[in-house]
Amino acid sequence: MTSPLPATAKNTSVEEIQSIASQVRRDIVRMVHGCQSGHPGGSLGCTDYLVALYFHVMRHDAENFTMDGIGEDLFFLSNGHISPVFYSVLARSGYFPVDELKTFRKLNSRLQGHPTTHEGLPGVRIASGSLGQGLSVGIGAAMAKKLNGDPSLVYTLHGDGELQEGQIWEAAIAGAGKKVDNLIATVDWNGRQIDGDVDDVMPLGDLHAKWKAFGWDVLEMQGNDMAAVLKGFDEAKSRTGKGKPVMILMRTEMGSGVDFMEGSHAWHGIAPNDAQLADALKQLPETLGDY
């Protein structure tokens, strides 16, 4: 299969990617502030992961989006509530106009509260929000790639609280059992969910041992250190094609990059007021121009 896509999306340096991440974090807090609704905490925590994925790791074609994505690496956001970071990264990488970010969660917008294909937003290939479904979808898409002889990879992202859903573990069995080794799943391991710490709400136990026992190739990664993220992706990619799906357990801080949002679950799903927005933006340099 021939592909016009480069080996990576862009040959970006760590500094360049960090610079993009700062702008994406600005977008996130501004979007959530703009509609006084949405989920900034997990979005900020996963910013480095998603920026690295879309601006360095994945081979993808933002200008010519197709649902099938033949010949492209695919990403599925399973924890759909962190839509602000997803939308910002999609817009900043060219899937749709950056200016459209201002419509987030507003009437007649393509940027629904949770991502959907229903409104035709380029870059989105599945609806998500009801948790636990994206790993199955990613496995199916990875199976389709194998059937098509397409060597590209499939990436999925999940919350750690999301792992309390039973379907995740059905998919964990299937991913290993069917040797879906063109899939790199990642868990946003921030230890927090809406009602509090994961360990208090419903402890997940030894996650590393669990995924390993299910037959996955497991690695851990610091998710808010861009150099570590890039290295982690390189390591994860090197483990594909070896008979096992790959799981990255990614340590992050909910609210990462905005000091008053870090350290608790409080900012999982609330919006900053005007003063809080100003405080947050002071911490996040505007690098690409606000929408």
């Binding site: 290939r125 599945i126 790993l135 979808v137 496995i139 199976m143 389709a144 998919a171 299937a174």
Partner: peptide, 8 residues
């Protein structure tokens, strides 16, 4: 879920 993914 896998079936949904396979359509992609």
């Amino acid at each position: 879920g896998m079936a949904a993914g396979l359509t992609i």
